[in-house]
Design a protein around this nucleic acid. Structure first.
Length: 243
DNA sequence: ATACATGTTGGAGC
DNA sequence: GGCTCCAACATGTA
C-alpha cells in the first residue's frame, strides 16, 4: 500500500468527501474519535507517506505502515481502525497508524521535502545530502527528512536508473550522480504514480523483485543493505560502487 | 503453510 | 547523545 505515490492516489480518490460533514465515526483507533463527530472535512493533503485529513483546528494523520489498507464506500471483514460515515458514502481505514495533529500543518511539515509536492526543492535535498557524506545512498533515499514519500521500491528502481550501487557513500558520489539521484527520485515517483494509476506498476519494475539484469542479463544481487536492512536489488555490473 | 514484505516507532544496550 | 539492533504492529501473498 504505502510509498508516496499510492498516498497521492488515495488523496485524489477521497477528494469528493472534501467539504462534507462526518455524520458518524467509529473504529478501534486509540485517538479521541469523538472529536471528528459532526465535523466538516475541510481539506485532504499528503506529505510523503502521510495522508492528512484536515478539520477545523486539527488534522487526522493516517500512516499505512506496511500493512495498512482502506476501503471507500465499502467495508472489509476486519474491524476498521477508523470509520468515517458521511450522509453519502463512507471511508474505512484498516491496520494503520493514526494520530491527531493539533498544531498547524505548516509548522509540522516541510512541504519542500515531499518528492511529489509542487513545493519540492532539489537544492534542499542537495544540501541535506552534503551533510551526510558517510551515509550509504540506499539509506539516504529512504530518509523521509530528505526524500519524503520514497520507499523501498523507489529506492531500488532509482539506483538502477542512475547506475549507482546502493552501498555507495553519498560523499563519494560525483556531482553528476548526486544530481541524478535527486532528479530521478522525483521522476521515478511520478512514473510510479502514473503506472500505479494504470495498474501497470509491477510490469515496469526493472530490478525490484527481479532475478536478471534487464541491461546486461547477468543475475541481479539481492542483499539486505544499509542501516535499515531493507531488501535491495541491484546489478553489480551496471551499478557503479563509489566508496 | 511458513515466511516474507511498498514502514515506522520506541526501547535497550553500547 | 548517537548509533544499531530488535520487537512490535498486522495482513496479503507466494
Amino acid at each position: 500500500m504505502p510509498e508516496g505515490p499510492s498516498i497521492v492516489i488515495l488523496k485524489e480518490e477521497l477528494a469528493p468527501f472534501i467539504g462534507k460533514k462526518v455524520t458518524a465515526v467509529s473504529g478501534n483507533s486509540k485517538i479521541d474519535i469523538a472529536r471528528l463527530e459532526k465535523k466538516k472535512l475541510t481539506n485532504i493533503k499528503s506529505w510523503g507517506k502521510h495522508l492528512l485529513l484536515c478539520f477545523s483546528g486539527f488534522t487526522v494523520r493516517i500512516h499505512f505502515l506496511l500493512f495498512g489498507t482502506y476501503r471507500i464506500n465499502e467495508t472489509k471483514e476486519s474491524p476498521p481502525r477508523l470509520h468515517l460515515q458521511f450522509s453519502k458514502g463512507e471511508i474505512n481505514f484498516y491496520a494503520c497508524s493514526i494520530i491527531i495533529i493539533d498544531e498547524p500543518l505548516d509548522e509540522r511539515y516541510d512541504w519542500s521535502r515531499d518528492v511529489l509536492s509542487k513545493a519540492w526543492d532539489p537544492k534542499k535535498a542537495m544540501a541535506s545530502l552534503n551533510e551526510i557524506p558517510q551515509t550509504l545512498v540506499c539509506d539516504a533515499l529512504l530518509d523521509q527528512d530528505i526524500f519524503a514519500g520514497a520507499g523501498n521500491i523507489i529506492k531500488n528502481e532509482v539506483l538502477f536508473r542512475i547506475k549507482v550501487h546502493p552501498a555507495s557513500k553519498v560523499g563519494k558520489l560525483p556531482l553528476k550522480q548526486k544530481k541524478d539521484l535527486i532528479k530521478e527520485a522525483v521522476k521515478y515517483s511520478f512514473d510510479f504514480l502514473e503506472w500505479k494509476k494504470a495498474y501497470v506498476l509491477k510490469k515496469h519494475w526493472k530490478v525490484h523483485t527481479k532475478k536478471t539484469c534487464p541491461r546486461c542479463h547477468i543475475p541481479l544481487k539481492k542483499e539486505y543493505l544499509g542501516k535499515t536492512h531493507r531488501r535491495t536489488f541491484f546489478c553489480e555490473n551496471c551499478q557503479v560502487l563509489y566508496k
